[in-house]
Design a protein around this nucleic acid. Structure first.
Lengths: 113, 113
DNA sequence: TGACTATATCGCTTAGTAGTTATAAGTGCA
DNA sequence: TGCACTTATAACTACTAAGCGATATAGTCA
C-alpha cells in the first residue's frame, strides 16, 4: 500500500495525541461519561492550564469533543476508536511483559542450575 | 477500568513509537518483507544514521525485530498489531477528512446562497 | 453592571527528540 | 592481517512539547 505523505503525517499526528501518559489518563477517565475540564484536572492530578493544553491536542486530533453546558465545558469522546486502539496496544504490551517475565524466570532458573 | 501508571506509561511509549512519519514510512515498507537497514534508508529517503535511530525506538517498543544475516541485519515486524492499529487510525482520519470536506462544501454553498 | 466561576492562553523554563556529520564497532573476505 | 561493507553510536544543532504560574477571556448570576 502506498500512502501519500499527507495521510502519513495525519496518522502520525493521531498517534502523537495518544502518546502522552497524562492524555491517556484523561481519556481513560472519559470512558464512562463526559466530564468538565476542572473534573479532569482533579482526576488526572494536574493543573487546569495543563489539562486545557492536553485537551487542545486531543481535540485537534479529533479525538475529543467539547460541549458548552452553562458556564462549564463538557468534554466527551468524539472518536471511540481510541478504545479499540488502546485495547489492542494493551494486549500487545501485556504479551511483551509476559515475555519479559518468562525470560526473567528462565534466567533465574539458569543461574540456579 | 483502572490502569496502573506503569501500564499507561508503556502504552504511551508504544503510541509514541508510532507517532513519527518517518517511522510510519519505515513500517509501511516492511509490510511485505524484511529489509536491511540500508534498504530502509533508501526507501525512506533518509540517512542511515537516522534510520538506525528510528529502528532503535521501534525495537525498544517491541514493534520491530532484528536478525543478523551475514554482514547485514534484517529488520522485520515483531508485532503485526500495528497494521490493525494503522488501519483503524486511517479509517478514523478518512472519516475526519470527509467531514472537513463536507463542511467545506456546505460553507461554499452557503456563501453562494 | 460587577463579582464570580470556568476555561483558555501567554511567557517562561526544562526536557526530549529528529536530524546532521563523523566515528566506532562488528562481520566477511582476499 | 587489513580492507570493504554494514550498522550503531557520539556530539552537536534546532525544534517541539510538557509543565508551571500568571493573566486574559467568556459565560452566569445577583
Amino acid at each position: 500500500m502506498v500512502l501519500p505523505d499527507k495521510a502519513i503525517d495525519r496518522v502520525a499526528l493521531y498517534f502523537r495525541a495518544l502518546s502522552d501518559p497524562m492524555r491517556l489518563r484523561i481519556l481513560n477517565s472519559l470512558r464512562d461519561s463526559e466530564r468538565s475540564v476542572g473534573e479532569l484536572a482533579e482526576i488526572a492530578e494536574c493543573s487546569q492550564a495543563n489539562v486545557s493544553k492536553h485537551l487542545r491536542v486531543l481535540s485537534d486530533a479529533g479525538i475529543v469533543s467539547r460541549t458548552a453546558r452553562g458556564t462549564t465545558i463538557l468534554i466527551g469522546i468524539a472518536d471511540p476508536t481510541i478504545y479499540d486502539l488502546c485495547t489492542l496496544v494493551c494486549d500487545s504490551v501485556a504479551r511483551d511483559l509476559e515475555k519479559d517475565f518468562a525470560l526473567h524466570k528462565a534466567l533465574k532458573n539458569a543461574k540456579r542450575a
